[in-house]
């Protein structure tokens, strides 16, 4: 509010007629306050918790115990690496799968556009846990997909590259990555759709008119113009995928544990709050670092 008053004196208009300057701040206040108290402040308490020592029964004291970060990294770096690798692969796959569908909805679906869009969003309403459980059925050894994959030697290939351990599909890295791709695909498709919908189809025609092959048209026109959607979509897929542990627990095995799972169990089962908080904080810092580098490289600072 004080800021508004400072602003108004800077203009040439009489101060009394500039009183509406407080309006945006009044509109922002409740929501921003909510985010400051329940999003920003918890980050502070999280960091503070990680530097405390003690236990649940006797309470904690702040000891600035920074060594916990080293211990946490030393002990759990494989889970961190695994999380980012899985999330990275899943994001790439989601982009590969999501782009054609988003393009189809935006440019080719015509009067079926809304129907297809609804079909993309509607699965959200069936709990994602149930849908992930459904994949246990689809990928189970008794189902035809595994049999086909075995007959076509796909299972052999997956085993050779280390994504599965035997000739079944379930309870493997393959199943976890597939599940992550599946679960976060809508978060890829929606931003892609938004930016592809704005794409003027005449630009594609113009590129064709100027001797660009379909592939060149895509490379030189469609892709660059959809970049904001690509950046937003990859972020909205990668970030939740990196912190997810549902897929790893339901579709994976003991060798596919992701960092989210560690944080969850350290907090809620082991009750080692400082270690859990340290792990959580490391994850946050790594994600923020990656996102800011990525956003800067992609050149789209204004994402909203």
């Amino acid at each position: 509010m004080a800021e508004a008053a400072v602003l108004s004196t800077g203009s040439a208009a009489p101060p009394s007629r500039r009183r509406r300057n407080w309006v945006p701040y009044a509109l922002l206040l409740p929501g921003i306050l909510w985010l400051l108290i329940f999003f920003v402040l918890p980050m502070v308490t999280l960091a503070s918790q990680s530097l405390q020592e003690g236990n649940v029964d006797d309470g904690y004291v702040f000891t600035a115990n920074f060594s916990i970060y080293l211990d946490a990294l030393k002990q759990y770096w494989p889970q961190f690496v695994r999380s980012f690798v899985y999330a990275g692969i899943a994001t790439g796959l989601a982009l590969l799968l999501g782009y054609p569908l988003a393009y189809f909805i935006a440019q080719k679906a015509g009067r079926h556009k809304n129907l297809v869009l609804v079909l993309v969003i509607a699965p959200f309403f069936t709990s994602f846990l149930i849908r992930t459980l459904a994949w246990r059925t689809i990928l189970s050894d008794d189902w035809f997909i595994t049999t086909w994959a075995q007959n076509l030697h796909i299972t052999d290939f997956l085993q050779a590259v280390g994504l599965t351990d035997n000739d079944s599909l379930l309870n493997s890295q393959f199943a976890v990555i597939m599940g992550l791709t599946y679960n976060f695909l809508p978060f890829m498709i929606l931003p892609l759709y938004t930016s592809l919908e704005r794409l003027d189809p005449r630009l594609i025609e113009a590129a064709g008119d100027l001797y660009a092959s379909p592939w060149q048209t895509f490379r030189k026109v469609t892709w660059p113009l959809s970049l904001p959607g690509v950046v937003a979509g990859t972020l909205l897929t990668f970030i939740p995928a990196a912190g997810d542990f549902i897929n790893a627990r339901l579709l994976g095995n003991t060798q596919t544990t992701m960092i989210g799972s560690v944080i969850d169990s350290q907090f809620l089962r082991v009750l080692d709050y400082p270690l859990a908080a340290a792990l959580s904080f490391i994850l946050l810092v790594l994600i923020v670092a990656m996102v800011s580098v990525y956003v800067r490289r992609a050149g789209t600072e204004e994402l909203l």
Partner: peptide, 11 residues
């Protein structure tokens, strides 16, 4: 939107 759920929940 750029923070993993597990971080938001635990913090």
């Amino acid at each position: 939107m750029a923070t993993p759920e597990v971080v938001m929940g635990s913090s």
